[in-house]
Every structure is written in C-alpha cells, then in structure tokens.
Amino acid sequence: MTNRSTGKSPFSVVYTKHPNHTVDVAVLPQCNSKPAAEFAEQFSQMIQEVRQKLEESNLKYKEAADKHRKKREFKVGDLVMIRVRRERFGHGSYSKLSPRKIGPFSILRQINPNTYVVDLPNHYNTSNTFNISDLSAYHPPDAAPTNLSSSDSDSSVSGGE
C-alpha cells in the first residue's frame, strides 16, 4: 500500500522494489561491481526524493493548520484572564466547580513570544510566569474602565516563584 506523503510503499522505499516473494527480504552480500554501484546511486537518489516529498507534505500540512491558527500577542499592561488547571494550581485551590478562568490580571513583561509574567497575587501560591496558551484577553462586560488596585496584587516583577 502506498503512503500518501511519499507516494511509495514502505517496502519499496527500503528495498527499492515491490515485493514479489518472501525471499525478497533476504540481505544481499557486498560486492564491488558497476551494477551494484549504480544500484546504490539509484537507491540514495530515491531516498533523497522521499525526503523531499515528505518535506513538501509537511509544509502542506503546516499551511493547512496555520489557516486556523490565531496569532496572539499581549503588551505590558494588557489585562488577561488565566486558565485554571489542576496541574498548575495546588491542592485545595482547584475544584471542578471553580471558574475555569481567573482574573483579570495585568501583564508585567514578556519573556519570549510564548511566555508572559502576570501580576498574580501571592495567595495563589504558583509562579506568575504563564504560557500564552493559558492566557486570554480580558473583555470587560461594559464600557466602564477597569482599575486594579495594588492591594489586589502583591506579586514581584521578577517572574520567579
């Protein structure tokens, strides 16, 4: 059966031909002949073609996945909601019936495109550094300005625990 990415069957990639019989799986001894050298050259060329087709196939899959992907970026001072996960928040602070997101909290700084330091209060007992997948933009329910008082947040800017 042929692979849709390579256009060849796995057997034909490994053994350079389609199987005729179970004896075809046998290992051939080494020899120093011109036909053997040509065969080796054809084999290496075929392997290169398979690699190229796999790269093209991967690019095609990536383009299809990127069509549905949204680029998210936050700036310092933006308000975000944090997704609450059992792995992240300790025993007793997470419940199945608790809200799935907490916040809003402001962004203190960006470490890299995927990691942000959030102004998280110390009573959460977790690091204030979050992956972008756990952050979502805060949209207030009305047009009134949202002010966070400094008593609500007492975390450090360092990004540590």
Rank of each mutant, 00 (worst) to 15 (best):
V84Q: 11
H68I: 08
S136D: 03
H123N: 05
R100Q: 11
Y124R: 01
N125K: 10
D152W: 12
D66F: 04
R72L: 14
R69C: 05
A65Y: 07
Y94F: 14
N131K: 01
K101I: 01
Y116A: 03
R88H: 09
E63R: 14
K62N: 13
L148E: 07
I107E: 03
G92P: 05
L108W: 06
H91Q: 14
V76W: 06
D152P: 00
A144F: 13
E73W: 00
N131V: 04
D152M: 15
R109W: 08
D154V: 02
D142G: 13
K71S: 08
A143T: 07
S95I: 02
H139S: 11
P145L: 10
P104Q: 05
A144E: 11
D78A: 02
L135I: 03
Y138H: 15
K67R: 15
K62G: 05
L108C: 10
D142H: 13
K101R: 12
F74D: 02
N128E: 03
L120G: 01
L148W: 03
E63D: 14
T126S: 01
F74E: 07
V157N: 04
R69A: 12
D154M: 01
V80K: 06
T146R: 06
P141C: 04
P121R: 01
S98T: 00
R100V: 11
S136A: 13
K67Q: 12
R88A: 04
R109D: 13
V84R: 06
F130T: 10
R100Y: 09
I132S: 11
A144L: 11
P121T: 06
P145D: 07
A65M: 08
G90Q: 07
A137N: 12
K67M: 07
E87D: 13
N125V: 05
E73Q: 10
S93H: 05
P140V: 10
